[in-house]
Design a protein around this nucleic acid. Structure first.
Lengths: 202, 202, 202, 202
DNA sequence: TATGAATGAGCGTTCATTCAT
DNA sequence: TATGAATGAACGCTCATTCAT
């Protein structure tokens, strides 16, 4: 089976990551077995080790791979033509996707593991992304609300909105549609509109 | 061998649950070993099985036992002399307690397990408590803001605030003081004040 | 099965060591499996780990345990009432014991492993014992041959005799009785007698 | 794809054996992996199987290949112009070669494997070579010492000297220069000289 | 012929659970 | 009732071997 193209290899790698994400999110990293991941990926157990050095490495790979497109927009608001309200809605709309729950689970799983093990690297990475994210949210808030933010602590507000987002994801995971994340968002938008007036044109 | 009193037995049970909560929150349910829990509880490994049928059973027991005092106030606002703002602050202040992070971890751990295993009983229980909680938050909002809530979807707002709370707990767990939950709360309170004016006297 | 006496535990430990020595010498350390050692010891695989932390630890334990009685005499000739010739013969006679081949195998196995892995601790230990052994042999030579050793390099002679001993063990292992270690010893004694005259009274 | 010459194939075979000898002696047969041997030989793992049926077969091949040049002289003393003393010294001098330790390791490794597995063919072969070797040593002893050997058991003496040689190799492997094989040889030569007088002219 | 991806049996090790004491 | 030695089923991982290319 020699001389498989680079693309083939990369595709295999991805299919293993997909399978692993599925299984990790279903069973948890600790609860998942390499055998099951292999089965899910349509491979033998040993084959995975050509692509990932260990279960831990595979789990790390899943985390890296799960960076979602929407996240990107918040991290780099300058690349995006949307205002805060629009992007919020796009973000919450994405929670309705069927993979969203899986991603949430997987992310929680990973993040809990990092905390548990005091994985300094992972935590630092997370901290840095968090900082950028909060900054991105602040930028979008200012873009949309401008001077009406006067008197508000924009950084803390951005943090609060971010917390709200993850809380909503969590509740959506636990409660399903009952959590109604979009309705929650609308309620919060109502609050912001009441406090600052409708966001002006972007 | 004298008959051991019922109270004694119950105390043992509790001390095992405490030990297990500690270890589960530190290592995760899957990562914890019965031997470690036993050590933490000052017992032998075998002894635990007189009180809990299995590790799984013990984990379930921990979930039931983790209801926190502050929660009670939100569930039963009629028993409490506080307004929304005060109770929010008390609730967020409680996050500074050193055990808070442990409780957050444990709760996430448990709740993820329940989702994973599709544990219908646990999820139903959670759903019911959630409903009451949202109702309690709504009650407190109305108590504090009265008719100024006119035009707002109080239920969705209560859900959003609840999401925000759990999101803040999660970020506090991951980021420590950098998450500054109290500052986040203040930012949100500012928003609410802007939208509805200062909450009137309770 | 609680509260087993210390003596019981020690006996188990010994029986595991015996089983392991048997299997290691038969299959080599690398070729032996913990399962087989357990079976040989009449235990389950897991049980061994109460007594030894790992296969490697067990192997080390076997080496330590295999210090033979005869060796002691050479290390501490002052405790022994024998002359060189007598002790040599006792030592070579011990090679006829059925366990001798096993001990030889095990020792070679261990010593090769130490060299392979550059195990500095083990090698240092070996080096030290070697030094003492050579000194012991020298002492015995002087005791038996006295001034007739004049003109000989006693240290090198002791080393040569020691090499001869291990070479004879090795050949005995490979060839069985054909190696005739005792005949070899007699030949060498003949040489020494020829060179220095009969060893005087001790 | 042109037909590859027989010589080419044979050269490949040899280069694999060389690589395997290196790796086996470094890691032990059990500890070595086919992948490592292949890498060392500059081939892929699969390719080796065109030349050797299995790892075991490869190991056997190494044993056969390890006959050393010096050995030849002892096996066929009639082809050689040296006396016992000279050849002894040449043989011991060869131990200083850097590959000597490797050869010793490999030989021990192989020989232990043969004993372990009761490999009758290998042991018979060894036994036969041993017989010839002892005879060769005897021939050289007689050539050098002639009638001064009167009264000595030449066969046993040859065996003893052979044992001494392998013991010295073993100690040299374990102790490095501290073992001083040449000094040991001199000591033994001194003994022989003392017992029989200087070996006469060859 | 050579490659190297894939297989799959088997290893060392862990740990929830049992049960003789 | 408590102990902790023992069990034994998994698990993560390795590697000799195969075979499509």
């Amino acid at each position: 089976m020699a001389k498989v193209t680079e693309a083939h290899l990369e595709a295999r790698r991805r299919s293993i990551l997909d399978a692993a994400s599925r299984v990790f999110s279903e069973k948890g990293v600790a609860g998942a077995t390499m055998a099951e991941i292999a089965r899910e990926a349509g491979l033998s157990a040993g084959a995975i080790y050509r692509y990932f050095a260990s279960k831990e490495d595979l789990a790390r790979g899943c985390l890296d791979a799960s960076a979602e497109a929407v996240n990107k927009a918040w991290l780099h608001p300058e690349l995006v033509e949307m205002g805060f309200t629009e992007l919020s809605e796009a973000t919450f709309a994405a929670l309705e996707r069927p993979e969203a729950a899986m991603d949430t689970r997987l992310w929680l799983e990973q993040v809990l593991t990092a905390v548990r093990e005091g994985d300094a690297t992972a935590l630092k990475e997370f901290r840095e992304e968090y900082g950028q994210l909060i900054e991105g949210i602040g930028t979008l808030l200012r873009r949309s609300f401008g001077e009406r933010l006067e008197g508000y602590d924009v950084h803390a507000l951005a943090q609060a909105l971010h917390s709200f987002y993850w809380g909503a994801r969590l509740m959506h995971l636990l409660l399903g549609e009952e959590a109604a994340p979009m309705a929650q968002l609308k309620a919060l938008q109502g609050l912001m509109a009441g406090a600052m007036g409708e966001p002006g044109a972007r």
